[in-house]
Amino acid sequence: MTYSEVFSHIYSFMKHDPRGNYKLMLGTDSQIHESHTLFITGIVVQRIGKGAWACFRKVTVPRCMTVLHERISYETTLTEEVASLFTKEYIDALIQIVLPYIYKGASFMVEGHIDIGAGERNKTRVYVNEMMARIQSLGIEPKIKPDSMVASSYANKFTK
């Protein structure tokens, strides 16, 4: 799908129930295969408690990216690329859907899911501040494990 088609699906999904609580969540995961590294960026709009619509973007790097920092950084870059497509005008259009209903409980937020964790035994913990700062600099709420379900669960499912 083109970005316009993706946005159209998200817009229609939200327009169907403008009183909902919405999260637009973006996140990337990767998997090293025999001769390449596969990256999947998930784009998920969730109507909390009432379903979701999702799609993903696939990028293949024709080599095994075994250096963890490089792979985590590239995952974050791909999430940033997709996030940059959601310009102020696009985000404003989605906000306008729920705006008349915010005093009745409607909401909309954008999150960037990063497939890293801050746990003591997690090898990626040394990159948490760096990657969170990158996502935050886009004006997006960064989420890490266990709250980064688009990267660590949805996108992960398609990397295998």
Score class of each variant (00 low, 15 high):
residue 11 Y to W: 06
residue 11 Y to S: 04
residue 11 Y to A: 02
residue 12 S to V: 07
residue 12 S to D: 12
residue 12 S to Y: 08
residue 13 F to E: 03
residue 13 F to V: 01
residue 13 F to H: 02
residue 14 M to K: 03
residue 16 H to T: 02
residue 17 D to I: 00
residue 18 P to L: 02
residue 19 R to A: 08
residue 20 G to A: 12
residue 22 Y to E: 03
residue 22 Y to W: 04
residue 25 M to N: 14
residue 26 L to K: 09
residue 26 L to H: 00
residue 27 G to P: 04
residue 28 T to N: 08
residue 29 D to G: 01
residue 29 D to R: 03
residue 31 Q to R: 15
residue 31 Q to F: 13
residue 32 I to A: 10
residue 33 H to S: 11
residue 35 S to Y: 14
residue 35 S to L: 13
residue 38 L to N: 13
residue 40 I to W: 03
residue 41 T to N: 09
residue 42 G to T: 11
residue 43 I to N: 05
residue 43 I to Y: 02
residue 43 I to H: 07
residue 44 V to H: 02
residue 44 V to A: 01
residue 44 V to I: 10
residue 45 V to N: 01
residue 46 Q to R: 14
residue 48 I to H: 11
residue 48 I to G: 02
residue 48 I to R: 10
residue 49 G to A: 05
residue 49 G to M: 03
residue 50 K to D: 09
residue 50 K to V: 05
residue 50 K to P: 06
residue 50 K to Q: 12
residue 52 A to G: 00
residue 52 A to N: 14
residue 52 A to L: 14
residue 53 W to A: 04
residue 53 W to R: 01
residue 54 A to G: 13
residue 54 A to W: 12
residue 56 F to T: 09
residue 59 V to A: 11
residue 60 T to G: 05
residue 60 T to Y: 00
residue 62 P to F: 11
residue 63 R to M: 13
residue 63 R to N: 11
residue 63 R to G: 00
residue 64 C to E: 15
residue 65 M to H: 04
residue 66 T to K: 15
residue 67 V to Q: 13
residue 69 H to W: 10
residue 69 H to Y: 12
residue 71 R to P: 08
residue 72 I to Q: 10
residue 72 I to R: 10
residue 73 S to G: 06
residue 73 S to A: 13
residue 74 Y to R: 12
residue 77 T to S: 11
residue 79 T to K: 01
residue 80 E to M: 11
residue 80 E to L: 12
residue 81 E to R: 09
residue 81 E to A: 07
residue 81 E to F: 06
residue 81 E to I: 04
residue 82 V to E: 13
residue 82 V to C: 07
residue 84 S to Q: 12
residue 86 F to C: 03
residue 88 K to D: 06
residue 89 E to A: 09
residue 89 E to H: 10
residue 90 Y to V: 05
residue 90 Y to T: 04
residue 91 I to R: 06
residue 91 I to F: 07
residue 92 D to T: 04
residue 94 L to F: 06
residue 95 I to P: 02
residue 95 I to N: 07
residue 96 Q to H: 10
residue 97 I to D: 01
residue 98 V to R: 05
residue 100 P to Y: 03
residue 100 P to M: 05
residue 101 Y to F: 11
residue 102 I to V: 15
residue 103 Y to L: 11
residue 103 Y to R: 15
residue 104 K to H: 09
residue 104 K to F: 05
residue 105 G to E: 00
residue 105 G to R: 06
residue 106 A to C: 08
residue 106 A to N: 02
residue 107 S to A: 11
residue 108 F to R: 02
residue 109 M to Y: 05
residue 110 V to I: 15
residue 111 E to A: 00
residue 111 E to T: 12
residue 113 H to L: 07
residue 114 I to Q: 12
residue 114 I to A: 00
residue 117 G to M: 00
residue 117 G to Y: 03
residue 118 A to L: 10
residue 119 G to I: 07
residue 120 E to D: 13
residue 120 E to I: 15
residue 122 N to V: 10
residue 123 K to V: 11
residue 123 K to T: 09
residue 125 R to F: 05
residue 125 R to D: 01
residue 126 V to I: 14
residue 126 V to R: 12
residue 127 Y to Q: 07
residue 128 V to D: 06
residue 128 V to F: 06
residue 129 N to Y: 12
residue 130 E to D: 15
residue 130 E to H: 04
residue 131 M to P: 05
residue 133 A to I: 07
residue 133 A to N: 14
residue 135 I to F: 04
residue 135 I to R: 03
residue 136 Q to K: 15
residue 136 Q to Y: 14
residue 137 S to N: 13
residue 137 S to C: 06
residue 138 L to E: 01
residue 139 G to D: 08
